[in-house]
Design a protein around this nucleic acid. Structure first.
Lengths: 340, 340
DNA sequence: GATTTTAACTGAAACCTTTTTGAAACGAAT
DNA sequence: ATTCGTTTCAAAAAGGTTTCAGTTAAAATC
């Protein structure tokens, strides 16, 4: 059940009585050809059901018009939303995208990286799983690569992220303004800039308000559901539990909510919850979740645009670029003033 | 910032003092070569940081080791779960997968289909957006294609789906056994077999129990969140609303829950909800959702395996194959006996 | 009308592999 | 010594496109 043999440019050329060069010119309209010839060729293409062979073209031009996108978790709506933005702008630019799922596993990330490399993708979009420069090999080669959402600490290169610091600051401010004093945080991975920045935003808001940050209120998670559940349980079982929890990504928030439900802690009456990452279903929850919404689609769009510019620019002028997109606080029902 | 020029097989051959044929033999170990030569060549590959050019290989072998996967909605966890299964088995088979999102839009589906075709993917995995045979062109060419989850009515070919009929039957039975009599259904698209089969499973269970199916209780949705919300509202506002609702996919269930919340209808006290498709977060909901869980990962795995067999089999023996996977009813808190 | 310019087209090389064919070398069997 | 097989390797063709140096024909210039 192999694909039927497809017709080639040469066959089209023969049928139309022209040279392959002319057919190529028409396909890519790289230079002008007289109308009657163009017609004959187009007719021939129709008759033979000709479709240009991208593979051969790629071999010749050294451009595959394919990019790779590596994300840590396909099942996380944040990343798939970004993916939508990427795909949309990729398509309008004539690119296809190979999506790879690293499952938050550095080893899988590395193998994906190298198969993408062997496949001669023109560039790569990467949300790394850890702070180690798994991308060293690529960046050393001056290979077009742009990071998104997550960037390793000390990274220099091209990336598009959210204004994590500002967003976390605003989120914490909101909790403070509601009157909370015992505010806990469940952080993400702290070898990634987004994890750190969110923590720092929280810290700044707390310090500004002269609120103490207890060690036990600073729980380190890893962006996975389980860690949200586990750290949540830990917080709620404290002798002096917090009255508000700021949770640094969507999956962990889910875990946290599960912990709340299990312990029958009413939200927001007993403890307010504010989660990073908005998602379709946040508003279907009971209570409706207060979240900070990242501009996911926009992030994907910007990242892909940057990557395409990158690929197109044959210069080795690897200009650095760090685009930061503003995030938005969406106040719903999971945050309220603390009970007296 | 183009990629640095990469070394070729010829360069490796020269450095090692052998012919390219020998290098090729070593790379693919297609035939034996004496140990000392092999060593020299491998050393040369290391020195030059040689990576075989998949593009050139594809051109020659007429195999891209890439498949396309078209899904109607990347943001639907059902499909991304399937994707995980696909990617996993693809990788072990040496394949990469280009993921395309049709956004439930037949036009986008068609354009994706044709760009995948132009890119010379070896095969395609498709969950179509409608019953029209958009894939006609492909199937006519005897192009390796396997459908999953959704298949057009009257389809003959290769596909892997869930046992939709049986699952819907079991789900409805569960509601009946709880004592419900006024059971409504929000169906999916009815030009797709999965939509139909779920409806038929419901119908059979109802008829067997000699329960009437009122026209107003049979609400046709389209697998999107909004339709679940809208049809849910309609059902709840009926003079004689149902005491249980069977909802035919996850997104619509979300919409339905939103409608319930908006109208302040307590679930399951006033109306029980049973949703098709389980997902990570179904159990984080309040109430925890009773769902029928499809074997998503398994479905992706089976589909990819079938596709690979298909591609490998150069025979044109287009054997039909319809693999149906059992689904599992997960009883949680959103279903209960009707209030008296 | 002779010459130059321009436009339209041809033909072949090149991209990097895989694959096929055939040659060389060698040992074993006749 | 000759034949036959095997193993190992080199050389070249093939795969479908793009690109570039040329060629031809027509148009423009004087």
């Amino acid at each position: 059940m192999m694909a039927k043999k497809r017709s080639t440019m040469l066959e089209v050329a023969r049928l139309a009585g022209v040279s392959v060069g002319t057919v190529s010119a028409i396909v890519n309209n790289s230079h002008s050809v007289r109308p009657h010839l163009r017609e004959r060729v187009e007719e021939a293409m129709r008759v033979l059901d000709y479709h240009p062979n991208h593979i051969a073209r790629s071999l010749k031009t050294n451009r595959s018009y394919t990019v790779g996108m590596i994300i840590p978790d396909v099942t996380n709506p944040f990343f798939t939303d970004v993916m939508r933005g990427v795909e949309d702008t990729a398509r309008t630019g004539g690119y296809s995208v190979i999506l790879c799922n690293s499952n938050e596993d550095p080893a899988q990330e590395r193998t994906h990286l190298s198969t993408l490399f062997a496949r001669r993708v023109d560039g790569i979009l990467l949300a790394p799983t850890d702070g180690h420069a798994a991308e060293d090999r690529l960046t050393h080669r001056r290979f077009p690569i742009v990071f998104f959402d997550r960037i390793p600490t000390g990274f220099r290169g091209q990336a598009v992220v959210a204004e994590n610091f500002e967003a976390a600051y605003a989120a914490t401010r909101h909790l403070i303004e509601l009157g909370h004093q015992r505010i806990a945080i469940i952080t993400g991975k702290l070898d990634l800039r987004n994890g750190i920045d969110r923590l720092e935003g929280y810290r700044k808001a707390m310090q500004e308000a002269h609120l103490p940050i207890y060690d036990e209120y600073l729980q380190r998670g890893d962006f996975q559901l389980e860690s949200g559940y586990d750290r949540g349980l830990r917080l709620l079982k404290l002798a002096q539990p917090p009255t508000a929890i700021f949770c640094c990504n969507n999956k962990m928030t889910l875990g946290l909510m599960r912990a709340l439900a299990e312990l029958q802690v009413p939200c927001p009456q007993k403890v307010s919850v504010l989660g990073f990452d908005d998602f379709d279903w946040a508003s279907s929850f009971r209570p409706k979740l207060t979240t900070v919404a990242q501009p996911t689609f926009e992030m994907g769009k910007k990242a892909m645009e940057l990557l395409m510019r990158n690929i197109e620019a044959s210069e080795e002028g690897g200009e650095e670029a760090l685009i930061a997109l503003p995030a938005e606080l969406r106040i719903r029902e999971s945050t309220a003033p603390p009970s007296p």
